[in-house]
Simulated assay, not measured.
Amino acid sequence: MGYLYGVRFQMQETELVLALREELYTQNYHSIDWPAQRSYVHEVDLYTPHSMLLEGVYAILDTYEQCAFPPLRRAAVRRSYELVVLEDENTDCQDLGPVNKMMNQIVRMHAEGRESEAYRKHYERRHDFMWLGKEGMMMCGTNGSQLWDIAFMGQALIETGLGEEEEFRDSVVRILKWLDHCQIRENPKHFKSAWPFSMKTQGGPEQSAVDAAKSKLLVVCIAPTLARGFRAGC
């Protein structure tokens, strides 16, 4: 978002854009005082009221935007672009989630063009988040939570003792196989990680890594016979 604002990126007005403005806003789009909306937050969503200090900082930043120092702005835009590229490379263009993923896609298109390899990969990865529901096209908050879900399942099976029963033995072994397969054994390019939130290709470091490690250790330490069966089957 910082990059797009820094370069003042603006989409061309189309019939679709005009129709969306008509549908989403209760007044004429061009009559909206956009700077005022920054502090216009419904009381239900205003967890912490804006302080005078914050409003003062906003005023200073507004003033700076009217006379931004060009070399500093170019350096900031360049650094923002570098961070976008780093995230794309680490997550195979899936990024943290669909919101910043779509912004990253626009950034790469603006900087490298629609024919670039990065834009093509971003375009393909959009389908990881999209699905059709009864209300039409929907968008997931992530490309899934496979690792996190399976880690909790493993913990539940072991801590309740169900994992040691014959009926659930195969499930525990398969959970262990998934955790083993999903573990990131080679450090990504730009940060260290152990397990992702969803799947290995997404690769983003998450709190779920702790739960995955806990689940794997529980199986190995509390149900060693299952762990030996898993290793024998590999």
Rank of each mutant, 00 (worst) to 15 (best):
P205H: 13
P49D: 07
R78P: 00
T160G: 00
C182K: 04
M137G: 11
Y58A: 12
S51A: 13
Y123V: 07
A151W: 03
R125T: 13
A212S: 11
L20H: 03
P205R: 08
Q10N: 14
N104M: 02
Y29G: 08
R228Y: 08
E55V: 13
M153I: 15
P35K: 00
M130Y: 12
G203L: 10
A213K: 09
E115A: 12
Q207Y: 06
T26A: 10
G229Y: 01
G163V: 00
L46T: 03
P205T: 05
I175W: 01
N28E: 12
L147W: 02
L96N: 07
R78V: 06
R74T: 07
L20Q: 08
L83Y: 10
F197H: 12
Q105L: 06
A118G: 06
G144R: 09
E164G: 05
D128A: 03
N104Q: 09
M103G: 12
Q155G: 15
S80D: 06
F69L: 06
Q105N: 08
S39D: 02
R78S: 07
Y123W: 10
L83E: 06
R169L: 04
A76Q: 05
F191R: 08
R38Y: 05
I222L: 05
S208W: 04
G163I: 02
G56Y: 09
P205W: 09
M109F: 10
A232T: 06
T14A: 03
L61A: 13
N187C: 10
L162E: 06
L46Y: 08
V85T: 06
A212I: 07
K216P: 10
V219H: 00
L218K: 00
Q27R: 14
A212N: 07
T201Y: 07
P71A: 04
Y29C: 00
E15C: 02
T142D: 10
V7D: 04
D92V: 08
M103V: 05
W34Y: 15
Y29P: 14
T160W: 07
K214N: 08
N104T: 02
G233A: 11
P196E: 09
H190D: 09
D45M: 01
V210W: 12
A212C: 03
E117H: 15
V44L: 05
H30P: 00
H50K: 15
K189S: 15
T14C: 06
E135L: 04
K177W: 11
R74S: 05
R21N: 13
H127M: 02
P71W: 09
T142Q: 07
L96M: 08
F197L: 14
R38I: 09
V107Q: 01
Y64M: 14
R74L: 04
P49S: 03
L61V: 13
M52K: 12
I106M: 08
F129L: 01
R38V: 13
Y40K: 07
E112K: 10
M153F: 13
E13W: 08
Q146L: 15
R185P: 00
V84T: 10
D128K: 03
E117R: 09
D128F: 14
W34M: 14
Q37S: 11
P98Y: 03
V77F: 00
L217F: 02
R8D: 07
R126A: 14
H127A: 11
